[in-house]
Nucleic acid binder design. Structure first.
Length: 886
DNA sequence: GCTCTCACG
DNA sequence: ACGTACGTGAGAGCC
């Protein structure tokens, strides 16, 4: 006979965390919740002897319960970092146990368990549900027993329907009504104020359900009657929220729950990493080394050595010469102004640690020499940031040999968690503490005494050391070794140089623009108030919505989750109805310029240099593009003249020099021509045709001179759509035409560019077969949702499959050009400097005597960055500021 | 901290 | 029938 055991993972790990005293392993990782969970699990496995076991987890923050009640679980204390760092550890440990774990986007663990108990009821399988949450009692049945933790996690109370009846006088389903009436503060479910368990039980014994109570309020008296009547809707909503959803799509997955006992060697290895020695003894697991065949991974064991004035210089130097990794702690998001805490260097069983003050003192000289030594190879984590942070402390960093953050990005560019403790968990090497657990975050950020920092840095350096060979192997397996060593890693150094260099921004130009904007804004504001007949905050979408749609009665075009939409698309549709709309649109435009670009940029100008220093992030964008922060210099206005004037403030940093901009013409469509091999499209670029006119000719079936401006505009939108992974819905939306017409355009396009259609079809099939797509340089992006049964998720993945190779290859190409360009400038001893990258554009500052050289060199390098069948084309412009490079 | 809006390619 | 265009970052409002 089968017996299922279904464990509410989130509930139990929370209980365990708060029930157990703090406990850490030697790398500083908190392990108390995992320990508590494990002891409970072992006990239950022993007592229940299940044939199938599952641990269910909540996935993500937003569930279907938030639809219609966004405050669900609002006001909840944030998970403490000491607990959140234990989630990946628990998940890995469960793998060692060979126990199945489910989590599903949009659903909570309860819903998964609720669905499985429904199946158990239908199939007559004996089941035990383990949780700390009383809500689970609603799932109890003939087949299903609920075990609720008591006093922490060491004891459980088991409930079947009879016991629930005995204790509460309710059926399992009435547990839902109980919560509907009394609410639940921890989930922010309101219930009826003033109704607690006692009152709720009394009401239910009399009227059976929430609905019953609400239908019979006439039988209630006084305050109680008032309260219930005033909160009818709350009670009904609370009941809905408390109802566990039992139809989660989990078809045919019950086989995956089969549990055949744990692998002793694997479990022993996990316990050793966590340093659960008592459990190793208790289960009589093999000691390290005696594991049969299984590779024995010891817990982190290394000696931490502080570098100080007593340190023997020659042994320090000898150690550095054979170092295996370095971890440099630059704390803070912006490396141009981060706090340098110190660094750790690891080799074998030893880790040297040095604090920032010592590093900058004479005692730190050997370490500084080593950091600056180009011939001393360094394996590290986010060395791009480290190099930048060190440079602001006048410490040179050279010799990057491998960067585990950069490698992690290439191996999975969509994974946003690139922290070392996460990578350690992912690769199954000794678990370490999270930064958040050591330093806190945001307002709670605090640097602990260096003793603790040193332990943490040592653990991180040791982790880097262990990760390197594993990631190198993975890069090899995924054909990205070359991409890594020949493109991304060299680029990271080029980027650091560009960032440190910065770009000069003329504050006076911005201030003048700012006061001009200020005058206009004041004037528009008063006109808007006149038309509205009242004063309000135009910047508040909420207040603006009330004025437009309630006070002035304009038609509602679109709604957002929280109210009326007032975005530009909506306002444009409202223009004919009221004069105020045009004014608001203009006000919005100017106020964006003022706050983000004038005021925002002014704040970023460094007093000492008069420059702004952006920070390019190389490990963010899923397609392989760079992103830019603090400030973002990749979204400086250009499309509208008003905003474009911001670019007048970007000037050369030396007198008489010039700004030179070079941008790829239609790089994405050229890349599409290349990877699709479409003859018609290739032909168009070989003849350097105006591609939107060419598209218009083919889509509308006319000659070049018959293409008018509107046809070209529509063709341009079709081209954009193609690059984005087209759909008739998207195109119709963009062009404000019917879906049918949009579909006709698309069909016409594919008739003319048959190779493009084949590419789109094939890439989606490839993605489905392989689970990923690649760029020309083998950059990879996984698309697990391409197989989703949910139409939306799947469609999104399909469009991504079409777009990523195009956008990603374009990113590959300009990155190659940047590395080449940097080399050329040095090789030729040119003084010209590369300053910015804006996806398809490079910006330089150039001394006048190098202008002619650069005007030919830059396009030459960019156009030949990657040899294709389709020519690449670069337009070059220059002037006294960025505005003039048009 | 989340939502909305909007700037860029 | 379903219901979105691809990739980013920043400021303001609001809870």
């Amino acid at each position: 006979m089968d017996k299922w055991m279904l464990i509410d993972g989130n509930s139990i790990i929370y209980r365990a965390f708060f029930a157990m005293p703090p406990l850490t392993n030697s790398a500083g990782l908190h392990t108390n919740a995992v320990y508590g969970f494990t002891t409970m699990l072992l006990k239950l496995l022993e007592e229940e002897k299940p044939t199938h076991v599952l641990v269910a987890f909540d996935a993500g923050k937003v569930t279907f319960r938030h639809e219609g009640y966004t405050e669900y679980k609002g006001g909840r204390q944030k998970t403490p970092p000491e607990l959140s760092e234990q989630f990946p550890v628990l998940k890995e440990l469960l793998q060692s146990f060979s126990i199945a774990q489910f989590e599903l986007a949009g659903y909570e663990a309860d819903d998964i368990i609720g669905t499985l108990t429904r199946m158990a009821d239908e199939q007559g399988v004996e089941t035990i549900v383990v949780s700390g949450d009383k809500d689970m009692l609603q799932l109890a049945s003939e087949q299903v027993t609920i075990a609720l933790t008591r006093k922490g996690v060491s004891e459980v109370d088991r409930y079947d329907p009879a016991e629930i009846q005995e204790k509460y006088g309710l059926t399992p389903l009435q547990i839902i009504d109980l919560k509907g009436l009394m609410g639940d503060a921890s989930d922010n479910i309101p219930g009826i104020p003033g109704v607690g368990e006692k009152t709720a039980l009394k009401l239910l014994h009399e009227f059976e359900s929430v609905e019953g109570v609400l239908a019979n309020t006439n039988e209630l008296k006084g305050k109680m009657k008032e309260k219930v009547e005033a909160h009818k809707d709350d009670a009904l909503m609370s009941k809905r929220l408390a109802t566990i959803y039992r139809e989660v799509p989990l078809e045919n997955q019950t086989d995956e729950l089969a549990y055949g006992g744990y692998d002793k060697a694997a479990l022993a290895q996990s316990f050793r990493k966590l340093e659960f020695r008592s459990l190793i003894d208790r289960l009589e697991l093999p000691e390290a080394g005696e594991a049969d065949g299984a590779e024995a991974v010891a817990a982190a064991t290394y000696e931490i050595i502080r570098v100080d004035s007593d340190t023997d210089v020659s042994s320090l130097k000898a150690f550095l010469a054979q170092s295996e990794s370095v971890y440099i702690e630059a704390y803070g998001e912006n490396p141009h102004q981060s706090q340098l805490l110190g660094l750790a260097v690891a080799a074998g069983e030893q880790v040297y640690v040095i604090d920032c003050d010592t590093l900058e003192s004479p005692v730190g000289q050997p370490v500084r020499d080593w950091l600056a030594d180009d011939k001393a190879p360094k394996y590290g984590y986010d060395l791009h940031k480290a190099e930048l942070a060190l440079s602001w402390h006048h410490i040179t960093f050279c010799g990057t040999a491998f960067d585990v953050q950069l490698a992690a990005y290439l191996l999975d560019p969509t994974e946003t968690n690139q922290t070392l403790n996460f990578l350690a968990a992912k690769y199954g090497i000794p678990a370490i503490a999270s930064d958040e657990a050591v330093y806190g975050r945001g307002a709670k950020f605090k640097v602990p005494d260096f003793e603790e920092v040193a332990r943490h840095l040592a653990a991180k350096a040791d982790t880097v050391r262990r990760l390197v060979p594993l990631q190198q192997g993975d890069l090899e397996k995924t054909d990205m070794t070359k991409l890594y060593y020949e493109l991304e890693q060299p680029l990271s150094i080029v980027l650091a140089r560009m960032e440190k260099r910065g770009i000069r921004v003329n504050a006076q130009t911005l201030e003048e623009l700012g006061s001009e904007l200020e005058h206009k804004l004041v004037s528009y504001m008063s006109d808007i108030y006149q038309h509205a007949g009242m004063e309000f905050n135009i910047n508040s979408p909420k207040q603006l919505g009330e004025v437009l749609f309630e006070r002035l009665g304009l038609p509602v075009i679109k709604k957002t989750k929280t109210g009326y939409s007032t975005d530009a698309e909506v306002l444009e549709k409202l223009e004919p109805y009221h004069e105020i709309v045009r004014l608001i649109l203009y006000y919005r435009q100017l106020s964006k310029l003022q706050s983000t670009y004038v005021e925002g940029l002014l704040k970023e100008i460094r007093r000492d240099t008069g420059k702004v220093h952006t920070y390019y992030r190389q490990t963010i964008a899923a397609t392989g593009r760079l992103s830019s922060q603090f400030p973002n210099l990749q979204n400086i206005p250009i499309r509208l003249e008003e905003g474009r004037r911001i670019r007048k403030a970007f000037v050369p940093s030396e007198p008489d020099w010039l700004i030179l901009g070079a941008d790829y013409s239609q790089i994405e469509l050229r890349v599409l021509a290349q990877i699709s091999g479409d003859e018609n499209l290739k032909e168009a670029f070989v003849h350097d045709m105006d591609i939107h006119t060419k598209t218009a000719m083919d889509v509308f079936g006319v000659s070049a001179d018959a293409v008018d401006a509107n046809m070209r505009r529509q063709a341009k939108a079709v081209n954009f759509g193609i690059v984005y992974g087209i759909s008739d819905f998207g195109l119709s939306n963009n062009l404000n035409i019917t879906r049918k017409d949009a579909a006709r355009f698309i069909e016409q396009y594919f008739e003319a560019f048959k190779g493009v259609r084949a590419y789109m079809d094939n890439i989606v099939m490839d993605a489905r077969r392989d689970g990923y797509v690649t760029t020309l340089l083998e950059r990879r992006r996984y698309l697990p949702e391409i197989k989703a049964s949910n139409f939306n998720l799947r469609s999104f993945a399909e469009r991504t499959a079409m777009n990523t190779p195009i956008q990603g290859t374009a990113a590959d190409i300009i990155k190659l050009a940047m590395v080449r360009m940097d080399e050329e400038l040095r090789k030729r001893n040119l003084r010209s400097r590369m300053l910015l990258q804006v996806h398809d554009e490079l910006v330089f500052e150039v001394p006048p005597d190098e202008l002619e050289t650069m005007k030919t060199l830059v396009p030459e390098v960019m156009e030949s960055a990657l040899a294709l069948d389709v020519p690449l084309k670069v337009d070059v412009n220059y002037g006294i500021n960025w505005y003039e490079t048009k």
